[in-house]
Amino acid sequence: MTDFADGVAPAVNSGAADAAAGALSDARFAADHFALFGLARDFRIDTAALERNYRALQAQTHPDRFVTAGDSERRRALQWATRVNEAYETLKKPLSRARYLLAELGGESDFVRNNALPTDFLVAQMELRETVADAVAARQVETLESLRDERALALRAGYEALAAILAAAAAVADSQRTTPLAQAADAIRRLMFEEKLLADIDDALAALDE
């Protein structure tokens, strides 16, 4: 799985990185996923801090620690563990992180039904999939590998552009966010196709390798 966060300079704000050791307060439970892990609410995250704070919170809330605790405390720990896992899973992958942040900023969050995709983009996606299918049929591993590298670069560039759009959206007042949020939703929609394409190429390569 391609992770945009790999190789990206960590966020400057890692001073809050050790917030995970803090108390399991109700306020923290209700905070957004970024704040839960002591991260700034930004698409570019310090992945090392996320990992570190996730492990710390996981250790704090692990059911094994509450074996002898009372019912309500055990239930609370379970709720926390669930909350922490869900937040971590959402922030870990760039695509789900972007979708979450978009929704947090007040943007579109339904990607199931939307045809606001230009025909030229869809035609290009169709052609890329035809290229993959043809290469698989002809067992052209090198073609697939170079296509994978090309699409991985495109994916990375797409996430870079998305990071800038989301940062721009976050920097302005709610009333001025309409345009950047629409741009972000459009970028995310395209990236969803690119992620699927890359996953398909990886699957095809794995299948040819067997």
Binding site: F111, V112, R113, N114, N115, L117, T119, F121, L122, V123, Q125, M126, R129, I188, R189, M192, F193, E195, K196, L197
Partner: peptide, 13 residues
């Protein structure tokens, strides 16, 4: 008619 479903990355012509 070209359509796509972002949620699953499907493309249909």
């Amino acid at each position: 008619g070209m359509v796509g479903a972002p949620a699953c990355g499907d493309v249909m012509k």
